[in-house]
Design a protein around this nucleic acid. Structure first.
Lengths: 234, 234
DNA sequence: ACATTTTTCTGAACACGTTCAAAATAATAC
DNA sequence: GTATTATTTTGAACGTGTTCAGAAAAATGT
């Protein structure tokens, strides 16, 4: 609920150690029991510290989730490296990267909803649309920059520039779908990925057509203009 | 947190009255103080009933928000009627309807985030993607059915069929943007509407081109297939 | 009119996230 | 080595959403 919990720097070796202890306890419990069932008291107890101490290092329960999300992101990133080396077409890369994302997230489907739920709240520190500074978000977009950078497809420079962000946005949509996907083994989500990647590939070709230049320019200008949703300036 | 709060039918005239009393108190307080600042105890007190009694009629705090959302939806619907009578083109209608939606929601921007936050949670009873039965959602889509129905544009039948749902989805996206929009008077959101409506209009024309038939068919098939995200069957 | 069942309502209790003053400990200055 | 300051840690407290056993009141049956 509180938004601006001031920085909680670890000043000392002892502190670093305690922090790590609490975090690992939290990660364990969250993975085992999910979000609601994991209480701050349980985390503190498992870590062998007092409740108040847990709050000294992590401003809120939501902050623990952030760490969790960071972990899955790193996993996904690692799994992604060989793909970008092997595949060269945008379509193939996109397909693999997205499928990998979902399978990486798979173990946490049940409480991923909570993650997204808090992330969708503008007041939440986890909100991915807030502050450019949010390192998780930049990291996440960077993946799509790598994905686009040295692909062979003929894509006009203006589109190429905005494409990573647009793909990131698209990938957020996929995740949102997956969270709500109640089908067995999430086959629906994988089907959605297959179809939309195909469609997207066609759309990009289409948008790259010189005839589309004016429309494309306008659309991209809008995207650039509206990228920083959370910023106050008009 | 709890998902399936069983039906809370009002069995008696007295009950109906109490329920209305509680609801109006809740609506007042929510409007005045926002979500977090409005406690269930305050609602009960303002209504002159016990805390437990409030829970007898409304399964949770979230359920109160649902009522709130319902109210704004009805407001929007009413404001929409003259527009559909005056305007005949899809583009003009869409533009007005969306702008009206935002201005109707305007007074509640601050706690609309909370609404969306809980709505994004698959476990929440407010989740708009759950159960076909959800009447609010059907109502909401119906507006776009009316919007599309007797418009003059040449739109192929297959697209015309799915268009209401697609527009509803699009409108949800606009709202999500608006929630995160920190610009003064939400000028950014209005700009987004202007631009995307324009773009959408072009896209629909494009998709209506006979040459596009195969792609369109495939895309629409996918949409139809994946519409019921929340359903369990694959 | 009375008995029974159903509905409405109460107040206390629980568990949780979060806060805070202050104690314990470590780091630093002299 | 002692005093001072900074950091870490504690435990109790607060306010919250929610639950529940059962009391009060209303509806229903006979």
């Amino acid at each position: 609920m509180k938004s601006d919990t001031k920085a909680k720097p670890t000043k000392t070796a002892k502190g670093e150690q305690t922090r790590a202890l609490i975090l690992s306890s939290a990660l364990d419990l969250l993975g085992e029991r999910g979000y609601e069932q994991t209480t701050m008291r349980a985390i503190a107890q498992k870590a062998g510290v007092s409740l108040g101490n847990a709050y000294h290092y992590f401003g809120s329960k939501e902050h623990m989730i952030q760490a969790f999300y960071q972990r899955t992101h790193e996993e996904h990133l690692a799994a992604t490296v060989p793909v970008l080396e092997k595949e060269t077409t945008l379509k193939a890369r996109l397909l693999s990267v997205l499928r990998l994302k979902i399978s990486t997230l798979e173990p946490y489907h049940e409480f991923a909803g909570v993650l997204f739920k808090t992330a969708a709240d503008p007041h939440s520190p986890l909100n991915p649309f807030a502050h450019e500074s949010a390192p998780t978000r930049r990291d996440s977009i960077k993946l799509f920059e790598d994905l686009v950078r040295d692909t062979k497809a003929r894509i006009p420079a203006d589109l190429r520039e905005e494409l990573p962000y647009l793909l990131w946005l698209y990938h957020m949509g996929i995740i949102l779908f997956w969270i709500h996907d109640a089908s067995a083994k999430h086959t629906r989500t994988y089907r959605l990925i297959d179809h939309t990647v195909d469609l997207l590939d066609k759309l990009i070709s289409l948008a790259s057509n010189p005839l589309m230049r004016p429309v494309r320019k306008r659309a991209l200008k809008m995207v650039a203009d509206l990228r920083e949703v959370g910023l106050a300036e008009a």
